[in-house]
Computed example of a mutant assay.
Amino acid sequence: MFGSNELRQTRFYQDVFEEGRQEGIQESKLEIIPQLLALGLSIEQIAQGLGLDEQLVRQAAQPKS
């Protein structure tokens, strides 16, 4: 049986942890887009600054229904 330290050292755990971390970073970037638009930044500026695709920024900028 794995202890918590051994589990954390497995490649599977590290891959899953990294994937979750990347998803969290992406989600944070998407959440800040409306605030950046309110400050007057363009879609292109936001995409470039956050390292995101312009289409993804446009989608995130759409009001939620």
Rank of each mutant, 00 (worst) to 15 (best):
N5I: 13
K64P: 05
A38V: 05
V57G: 03
Q26W: 09
G40E: 05
Q55E: 13
A61L: 08
I46D: 04
R11D: 10
E54V: 06
P63I: 13
Q45F: 03
S4H: 03
L7G: 03
E19K: 00
N5K: 14
R58A: 03
F12I: 09
V16Y: 01
L36D: 05
Q59K: 11
R8T: 02
R8N: 02
E23K: 00
M1C: 11
G40R: 10
L7D: 02
Q14P: 03
K29H: 12
E54D: 01
Q26G: 02
F2W: 10
F17T: 01
L37S: 03
R8Q: 14
L30R: 05
Q14S: 03
S28D: 10
A47K: 05
G24M: 05
D15I: 01
E31T: 09
S4V: 15
S28W: 08
L7H: 06
I32R: 10
G51K: 06
L7V: 13
I33C: 07
L7K: 09
L39R: 14
Q45I: 07
Q9P: 02
E18F: 01
S65G: 15
R8W: 00
L41M: 15
G24I: 04
L50Q: 09
T10M: 04
R58V: 05
I33M: 10
E44S: 15
M1H: 10
E31Q: 15
I25E: 15
Q9C: 02
D53N: 15
D15G: 00
A60G: 08
A38N: 06
Q26N: 04
I25Y: 07
E19I: 00
L7M: 15
P34Y: 07
P63H: 11
E6N: 12
D53S: 13
L39S: 12
Q35V: 13
I43H: 06
E54H: 04
L39E: 14
R21D: 00
E6I: 09
E31S: 14
Q22N: 07
G24S: 07
R11L: 11
E27Q: 14
L37K: 11
Q26K: 14
D53I: 10
Q22S: 01
E54N: 04
P34V: 06
E6S: 15
Y13H: 04
I43Y: 08
R21S: 02
G51M: 02
R21M: 01
A38W: 07
P34H: 07
V57M: 01
P34D: 06
R8E: 10
Q62D: 03
K64I: 14
A61Y: 05
G49P: 03
I46V: 11
K29G: 01
V57S: 08
Q55H: 12
E18I: 01
R21L: 07
E31L: 13
F17E: 14
Q35E: 13
F2P: 09
K29P: 02
F12V: 10
E54Q: 14
L30D: 06
A60H: 10
G40F: 13
E23V: 00
